[in-house]
Design a protein around this nucleic acid. Sequence first.
DNA 1: AGGTACGTAACGAGCGTTCGGTATGTAAGG
DNA 2: CCTTACATACCGAACGCTCGTTACGTACCT
Lengths: 200, 200
Amino acid sequence: MPPALGDREARREDVSRAVWHVLADKGFGGLTLRAVAAAMGVSTGMLMHYFPTKRALVAHALDLLEKRTAERPRRERPSEGLAALRAMLLDVLPLTSDDTARNRIWVSSWDLALADDALGADQADRYVRMRSGIRPHLEAARDLGELPVTADPEQLAATAVAFVHGLVVQALFDPGRFPGDVQIAMLDGFLASISSPRSR
Amino acid sequence: MPPALGDREARREDVSRAVWHVLADKGFGGLTLRAVAAAMGVSTGMLMHYFPTKRALVAHALDLLEKRTAERPRRERPSEGLAALRAMLLDVLPLTSDDTARNRIWVSSWDLALADDALGADQADRYVRMRSGIRPHLEAARDLGELPVTADPEQLAATAVAFVHGLVVQALFDPGRFPGDVQIAMLDGFLASISSPRSR
DNA sequence: AGGTACGTAACGAGCGTTCGGTATGTAAGG
DNA sequence: CCTTACATACCGAACGCTCGTTACGTACCT
């Protein structure tokens, strides 16, 4: 029996955290094994001991980033309808430095993902999961009368994801013009626009 | 007098077109001077004859891409209100292979732009210009009664840009799920949601 | 003793950039 | 009109560097 098998996965997570740090700082163009090793004070040989290739290291870092993001402590989460959707989308926006770093990593990863079929499929899957997490709240909102009965939850989920990620990109490039309160006002404006007249 | 000074700028545009081609195909991670030179059948020395550094070459290619995009022939352009906005946003969406390649380049460039202050400022300026081009149509729409009188054109412009770019990203990663008619339906749904009840 | 967990050093490839050379012009001088 | 002079436009090779990856050595644990 291999000794301390849990430690191995813990070390891989340490490495992934260093990858996140480098990515948020320098982007994928500045992501080198030497930079990752330096960020955690180890050698590149150590990295290769836990990952066979750089590509595997990157893929694991992105997978783990999604997982840890899903598990992270979140703001209070109303359980129903548009209020629940609002809380979900608020958790995506770059309102804290942590969320900003996370979003920088995702936006940066799109360059690689567009050029690498496997990583591109991973990204497409992440969007599928994101829309799937949103759609139930839209269905509930429709049942609660917060949305018109004619609303299409699947299409609206894609629209909400589009809006929030498009806002993320603009906010990352111009944080001075998109402080937290502006982002929140835009989100509330968006939610008000899709909601049914009688619920406004 | 330097001979044929106009030819020099024409050559720089030839180079930029090769840069676009490589970027759309391989992304920034695959953008090398050798790849650009090979794409146009010349040597890397020729590239350095027209651009001092790779960075300058990239910056010029992106600047020219924005300029040529603005000048390109467009679909018929209604001159007023939401119909004009619809035409503008339709021109952004990846509905043709040209538009897809263009959008791939922009999305890919965000990795570099987030890590390079000067390129990031360029990108922020492009967003400012994009919102500025949209806002007048929103003001006209409001004056025409297509939008509520309480609508904030500046915020709505940022919201529209967010929606359309967020949709671009999802469509690039999952073209099968976002064919042209779905993208157009989503855009029309978005425009309907922001328009005033009486104009619907 | 033998496997695990590293560090150190090096390899070959590929990178941006530099350099020297060679055509091809245009311009000036007699 | 020919010659000399010089800038322009490129090519091909090379430089110095950094990259991902490999090989090897060593300390530690069991």
